[in-house]
Design a binder for these strands. Structure first.
Lengths: 333, 333
DNA sequence: TTGTACGCGTTATCAC
DNA sequence: GTGATAACGCGTACAA
């Protein structure tokens, strides 16, 4: 069942069928209707491979993410896919893990599939060493690269980021403003976003005239148990703190569990703030105050920007989206 | 940059280049090496669209799910994608929501993309009324349809399911065996899997010689808050129960929050069992005993079965995988 | 072992 | 407004 069959049954040439198919106005209303009727009767569907060959696109974009089962990224993928599809694009998903070589391998695999663009979801795709990003810079000559909550400067590379720095600064400032003197900061990643958040923490301390104390800043695996255990051992070592700011809700959940384990009252003796406003923040008692990083807005903006790139519109290479602080019961502000 | 360029530079015909490309043994070692060298120098990548046109496949499968941000489905998608990719297949993701018409629309969209198979992830794709599934039955004539934790009988349709019924029966039996007399059952969905779990609950009661009491069986939105509120109002109405079995961890979290709100001790006065062994089960204090529904095994088995179908091997149309009960602190068994 | 020629199903460029 | 026909790039009979 192809365009020739349709043309024969309709008594026209394949050119006309193609014109009808693509909404070309140079077809008389009569032939158009006739062709459409025949298509319907025959249950004809154009062959996307042939179309792809001719147009050199199948209206498909690649979505790379390190781990699509991570709640934050799972949300991102959901919104990206829906938004892309609403614009008529398919999404090829590609879960890469965290190893640079694997990421590079999958990236070129995706390129070899001739996707129209690649979206890198999450901040794990921009490496510390500039030369480790060169594969992206080079590829951007051929196809647009979109970063969701990551930032890389380069031609044909577009970033949509949440203002993590301001978000953390605001939260920590509120903690300080509500009487906390020793705010512990727990983070899991050295990514662009991770370092931004850390800067926001320092900003807040500095703005309040407080010293930045290295012993209050700790890295920790993005894991409830790891976070709880780290806090337990820090407390055992004699470290004191009256608030915990975290870079992810899972770490905040760990902090709640630490407090429960030690009989510390929340928020009376310990305030806790999470990040991403995920389901996890609603699972504990008390429920966790958390920064809403606006995944949906991030993703729809990314896709809108991409559509702008496709249509040749002038589009910003970097868009920043403000976060929200969702106040719940682990803080007294 | 195409196969002709390579053939010219290498001084051979395109047929030879194609043979090298596809590992055809009928090429002398010398020409093979030469061609490979030229390919490398030119940075040649075969055009997947042209290949797809000729072979009528681009080694791509469609994955449909109602909501990829749901923790269970997010895990499923992760494992499906990784497993498919390890076999050289791409995944086109398609989040459909729960509306039948939309599901049908996206299903035919996926078919029109000429995917090699469609995987339906989650139990939300098999409808109660048989005629609502006929679109799947008919499509299966053209391409294999794989159900992950759903069951539909039909030619070229393959199901991989978790033995939910046995899992719930086991958990409820353990609750009864450890002294509980009134086990409340909370579920969220009427899907095949949802009804199976309910049957498991009834099985356990019957096996223990206990009556099935409708007032102990309640449907509830798959949502922490909804679950907590439902239990609060049931208790207010005077219903008593000493254990809660749930069809999803989120409902179990709600049960924990209910107990906290009412000062009920867990597991002393109330035992709770969740389902899916997700992150959520680890967020509460105490941590929740939960049924591990073996998503990874479910997904890799599904993909292995699909590969069997592709290669013409005789594969079972239905595979059942046993679950595990992960004992934590919301139960005293 | 290698090369020629055709088919795959479109889109697009002509000419009429 | 419509119809031939040439790309698009690959796989593969078939011939040599």
């Amino acid at each position: 069942m192809n365009i020739y069959d349709v043309s024969q049954h309709a008594g026209v040439s394949i050119a006309t069928v193609s014109r009808v198919l693509n909404g070309n106005p140079n077809v008389s209303e009569k032939t158009r209707e006739n062709v459409l009727k025949v298509m319907d009767e025959l249950g004809y569907t154009p062959n996307v491979f042939a179309r792809g060959l001719g147009l050199d696109t199948m209206h498909t974009v690649g979505i790379m993410c390190s781990d699509s089962s991570d709640p934050y990224l799972a949300g991102a993928i959901y919104y990206l896919e829906r938004s892309l599809r609403s614009h008529g694009y398919d999404s090829i998903l590609c879960c890469t893990g965290y190893d640079l070589e694997v990421k590079q391998k999958y990236f070129s695999l995706l390129r070899s599939k001739r996707v129209d663009a690649v979206i890198l979801a999450g901040s794990k795709f921009v490496e510390m060493r500039p030369r480790d990003n060169s594969y992206l810079l080079e590829a951007a000559a051929d196809l647009p690269i979109m970063l969701v909550n990551g930032w890389l400067e380069g031609d044909n590379i577009y970033s949509t980021v949440c203002d993590d720095r301001a978000a953390v600064k605001q939260a920590v400032s509120l903690l300080i403003g509500s009487g906390h003197k020793k705010v512990l900061y727990l983070y899991s990643s050295y990514s662009h976003s991770g370092l931004n958040k850390l800067d926001g923490y320092k900003d807040a301390l500095t703005a309040a005239g407080l010293p930045v104390q290295p012993e209050l800043i700790h890295q920790c695996a993005k894991d409830v148990e790891a976070s709880r255990d780290l806090l337990l051992s820090l407390a055992d070592e004699g470290l004191t703190f009256d608030a915990v700011m975290t870079s992810d809700d899972s770490l905040a959940v760990g902090a709640v569990k630490y407090a429960h384990a030690r009989g510390i009252s929340i928020p009376g003796d310990l305030s806790i703030v999470g990040y991403n406003n995920s389901l996890l923040a609603l699972c504990t008692d008390p429920e966790i105050t958390s920064v809403d990083s606006k995944v949906e807005a991030l993703c729809t903006t990314t896709v809108n920007t991409l559509m702008g790139v496709f249509s040749g519109v002038n589009v910003p290479s970097r868009t920043t989206i403000a976060s929200d602080l969702i106040k719940r019961s682990t803080t007294n502000f």
